[in-house]
Amino acid sequence: MNITRSLSPVIDQVGVEERIARLQTRSIKTASKVFALKLALSMIDLTTLSGDDTPGKVRQLCAKARHLHNRLPGLPQVAAVCVYAPFVGIAKQQLAGSDIKVASVATAFPSGQSTLQVKLDETRFAVGEGADEVDMVISRGEFLRGNYHYVFDEIQSIKEACGTAHLKVILETGELSTLDNIRLASDIAMHAGADFIKTSTGKIQPAATLPVTLVMLEAIRDFYYATGRKIGMKPAGGISNAKLALQYLVVLRETLGEQWLTKDYFRFGASSLANDLLMQIVKQETGVYQSMDYFSKD
């Protein structure tokens, strides 16, 4: 396909920020709060993506995923754990028998500065190790210099390499500068075969924001209107407390509605969010806040 900027509609940043400000005033109370807290918990991609990750660290993360808070029965499970490719095998092993997916970052995460061949090899390796989901990064440099075809073709190639694994495409919105660019990158990713579009690596500031997420959700909505295909959304980075997570769910609910209120189409990329959600759930059930020491760190 011929990709130019006219692929995407223009975005008015002021209007987007006003819409977000209005949605942030939604007041979520009592039963609807508990419902949303549990929903958010079920949408988490529990993540560790550090240079000092070790098999031991990954094993601990998987244990946390399986045993979020044993004291409180009836909790939902997180959606997935997200690790670097070399740890996919360990994570798969640790999570065997559970519904928790294993996601692997790939394609020279987080910068994406490598050759297509290296990126394809890494993707095939992760999938070969059993990754259910692949989180790739786009080549922001190529995007910013207007080489949209390159970005499109690269995503398409990685998608092919993924086989049956789901592909999440990280736009790294903090490096794309404008909402117009973010919208265009979203459209390119969806047309090239993304199953999910994702805001950030978590390594660049700003990471996920509500306005950026709204623009991406609106792109998903337009894509659905036009094709009937439902694309998922994953804000990642910086969403560390329950209140903010609920605001993301409000934006999701009022932009895409019921069909997207599931881990199949919405994920939070986060590491510390889970415990804050747990603390809030316990608070709703018992009426009091507990010390963070009652919640295992990993």
Binding site: R26, S27, I28, K29, T30, A31, S32, K33, F35, A36, L39, R221, Y224, Y225, T227, G228, L249, R253, E254, L256, G257, E258, Q259, L261
Partner: peptide, 12 residues
């Protein structure tokens, strides 16, 4: 392809 805003999650 229609969206569904009568969601299971309702605001109290």
């Amino acid at each position: 392809f229609s969206l569904q805003f009568d969601t299971t999650w309702q605001y109290d």
